[in-house]
C-alpha cells in the first residue's frame, strides 16, 4: 500500500511532476534575458497561477479523501498525485517569486507553503517507514492477541500471588493495577513508562519495566519457607518479565501510531494558514497593482 503511493500507475504523477518542473524552468528562463525575473512578469504571473491552482487542488485532497464513493480516480491515485505534484511546488513557487524574499506576506505565504510541504514530506516518510516498524513491533501478534495474553498473564499472576503472603500479594496486585501505557501526549509520544507499584515497607515506587516488582520478588525467593512458595514466586517472575516486554511493545506501538498521525496536526492547520496567506497574497498583488 505504502509503496503503492509512489509507484501508483507506473509513477505516472512523477512524470507529470517532472514535466511541470521542466516547463517551469523553461518559462522562467524566457524572462531572464528580457527584464529582471519577478512575479510581476507574464512568466511570473503564469508560474504563480500554476502554483495557486496546484495548492487549491492539493488542499482538495482533504475533502476528497473523505468521499469514498467518488468515481474520479482511486484515493491511492489522488495521494500519489498529491505527493508528486506537491513536491513540485517549491520549484514552481521559487521560480514564481524569482528568489525574491522579504519581510512581507508574500514571503509568509512562501514560508507557510514550505512548512506544509516539509510536514507533508515527513508524513510521507512515516507512511513509508512506520507501517513496517509497526509490523515488526507486533511480532506477528495482533493487539487483541497481545491484550489477551496480558489478561492471561494477569490472571496467572493473581492466582499465583493468592498463594503467597500478603506482602507479595499486595505488591503483585498493585503492580498489575498501576501498570500504565500511554498517559499524557508526551508519555505516548516518547513511550514513557510511568508504572508504579506499592511494595511492603517501601510504599509507592517507580515500577518502570516492572523492574521494582521483579526485584522485590527476586529478593523474596531466599526467604520462602512455605512449600511451593518459591515456585509461585518464580512463576510470578516469568509473568512480570513477559508483561514488561508486552507493555513495552504496546507503548512503542502507541508512539508509532501517534507519530503516524501527528504530522497532520502541522500539515492541515498550516495548509489553512497557507490558504489564508495565499488569499492575502493575491489580493495584495492586485490591490496595489
Amino acid at each position: 500500500m505504502y509503496q503503492g503511493i509512489l509507484g501508483h500507475g507506473g509513477r505516472r504523477y512523477a512524470w507529470w511532476a517532472a514535466f511541470l518542473i521542466v516547463t517551469s524552468f523553461a518559462v522562467y528562463w524566457t524572462q531572464a534575458a528580457s527584464e529582471p525575473p519577478s512575479g510581476g512578469t507574464w512568466q511570473g504571473y503564469g508560474l504563480g497561477g500554476l502554483g495557486v491552482l496546484l495548492i487549491l487542488w492539493l488542499s482538495w485532497l482533504g475533502i476528497r479523501k473523505r468521499s469514498y464513493r467518488r468515481a474520479s480516480g482511486t484515493l491511492r491515485g489522488w495521494v500519489s498525485a498529491h505527493v508528486y505534484l506537491g513536491l513540485t511546488l517549491p520549484v514552481i513557487a521559487t521560480l514564481h517569486c524569482a528568489f525574491q524574499f522579504g519581510l512581507n506576506i508574500h514571503t509568509l505565504a512562501y514560508a507557510l507553503m514550505m512548512a506544509v510541504i516539509l510536514s507533508g514530506a515527513y508524513g510521507l516518510y512515516v507512511y513509508l517507514r512506520f507501517p513496517n516498524r509497526l509490523v515488526a513491533n507486533r511480532e506477528d501478534q495482533s493487539r487483541d492477541d497481545l491484550l489477551a495474553e496480558l489478561d492471561s498473564l494477569d490472571q496467572t499472576a493473581l492466582d499465583a500471588a493468592g498463594q503467597c503472603d500478603d506482602g507479595v500479594y499486595g505488591a503483585v496486585c498493585s503492580a498489575l493495577e498501576m501498570s500504565t501505557v500511554g498517559g499524557s501526549f508526551m508519555d505516548q509520544l516518547l513511550a514513557r513508562d510511568r508504572s508504579r507499584a506499592r511494595l511492603p515497607e517501601r510504599g509507592l515506587v517507580d515500577n518502570a519495566q516492572q523492574r521494582a516488582v521483579i526485584d522485590h520478588l527476586v529478593e523474596r525467593i531466599p526467604d520462602t519457607s512455605r512449600g511451593g512458595e518459591a515456585e509461585n514466586l518464580r512463576a510470578l517472575l516469568r509473568v512480570f518479565g513477559r508483561r514488561a516486554e508486552l507493555l513495552k511493545r504496546l507503548r512503542r506501538e502507541l508512539s508509532l501510531e501517534l507519530r503516524l498521525k501527528l504530522w497532520l496536526v502541522f500539515h492541515v492547520p498550516l495548509t489553512f494558514a497557507l490558504l489564508a496567506a495565499l488569499i492575502a497574497h493575491v489580493v495584495a498583488v492586485f490591490f496595489y497593482w
Binding site: 498517559g183 492547520p269 489553512f272
Partner: peptide, 29 residues
Amino acid sequence: RLGHNLIPRVPGRRGLSYLLGLATLAVAL
C-alpha cells in the same frame, strides 16, 4: 484497564486550522 490510554492522543486539527487561518487572514489582509 488501558483502553482509554490505547488511543493516540493526537491533538485536534480543526480548531487549530481555523485559528491559524483566521489569524493569518487578520494579519496579512
